[in-house]
Simulated assay, not measured.
Amino acid sequence: MRMIVVSWMAEVSDEFGLQPETLHLGVALLDRFLSAAAPHGVPRGVLQMVAVACIMVAGKDLEVSHPTVEQLTAIAANCFTPQDLLRMERVLLDALDFTVCTQTAFTFLHLFAQGLDCLPAHVAALAVYLLDLTLLDYGLLSFPPSQLAAGALTLAMHTYGLGPAPVADTLRLAGYAPADMAAVSGCLLHLHQNAAWCGAPSALRPEWFV
């Protein structure tokens, strides 16, 4: 069920032209809310409204121009009212103790890319794509966001044959040894190889995806 909801969040984010970082923050808020609600669970009929509230809060935090309450309820086929969504926003913020800002894997990827000299655009694009795919796999939450970002970036570098120096620079920036990356790199490689079959929504596929 989570994978379906996150896939839909990606489509909504794409529809409104939101930044990738907004989607990553929205999914992080969703996972934190689900974790906080774990003892009782979230009714299936409410889950879509929770997801929309997460996108709305993330958009308010990161976007210069974010979707309105009316636009967000419309894209959810008016399954709930704007007033319902505003109430859910308050429930979400209460559950998160009004702590919205959190470091996602995308945040770390941006930091690592800034610390490298002349990172090729196609390598950065593949790293972003790999991180987008991780949003669909709940099991990858076991890895710290910084490790996911370092794994995505180094795997992209290996894929395009950049050589050992940029990989070493990335690991130095991230504070990881090569041995630390074996498990996360294996998971990311598996995601990449099976992307066509894992149900990844079109919104997460770059233009060169085949």
Rank of each mutant, 00 (worst) to 15 (best):
V91N: 10
F209Q: 01
F108V: 06
D137A: 09
V91Q: 15
L119V: 05
D31R: 09
Q147N: 01
D14M: 14
R90H: 02
H158D: 09
P67K: 05
C54R: 08
D14A: 10
A77W: 07
F108S: 03
P164C: 02
A28W: 00
A77P: 15
G115I: 07
V128A: 11
T102Y: 10
P201T: 08
S65A: 04
A183G: 05
M49Y: 15
V27T: 06
L18I: 12
V210I: 13
G139T: 04
A177E: 11
H190P: 06
V69A: 10
T68G: 14
P20I: 11
D180S: 02
A58D: 07
R205S: 03
L126T: 02
A195S: 09
A105D: 06
E15W: 12
F33P: 01
L93P: 13
Y129C: 05
L96D: 00
T22D: 14
A38T: 12
L155W: 14
M3H: 11
L119I: 06
T81Q: 13
L153C: 08
T102E: 13
G139W: 04
A38P: 15
T170L: 04
A36K: 03
T81R: 05
P120G: 15
M88D: 03
D94F: 07
A121W: 04
A179N: 07
M181F: 10
L188N: 13
D94P: 13
L135D: 01
L189T: 10
Q147P: 00
W197Q: 15
D132Q: 09
G115T: 03
T154G: 12
A182V: 04
L140C: 09
P43Q: 11
V12N: 12
L86G: 06
T102L: 15
N194E: 09
S35R: 12
L153W: 03
S13Y: 08
F98M: 07
G17E: 15
V27A: 14
G199T: 14
E207Y: 04
D61M: 06
L96M: 13
V52T: 06
G59V: 00
G59I: 01
Q114I: 09
V52C: 15
I75H: 10
A74Y: 09
Y129P: 02
G161C: 09
V69L: 10
V69R: 12
A174I: 05
V128L: 03
A77Y: 05
F112W: 07
L204I: 13
V52N: 14
Y160A: 06
E21C: 07
L130F: 08
L189H: 07
A174H: 03
R44T: 13
G26N: 08
M1E: 03
L153Y: 02
L72S: 00
M49K: 11
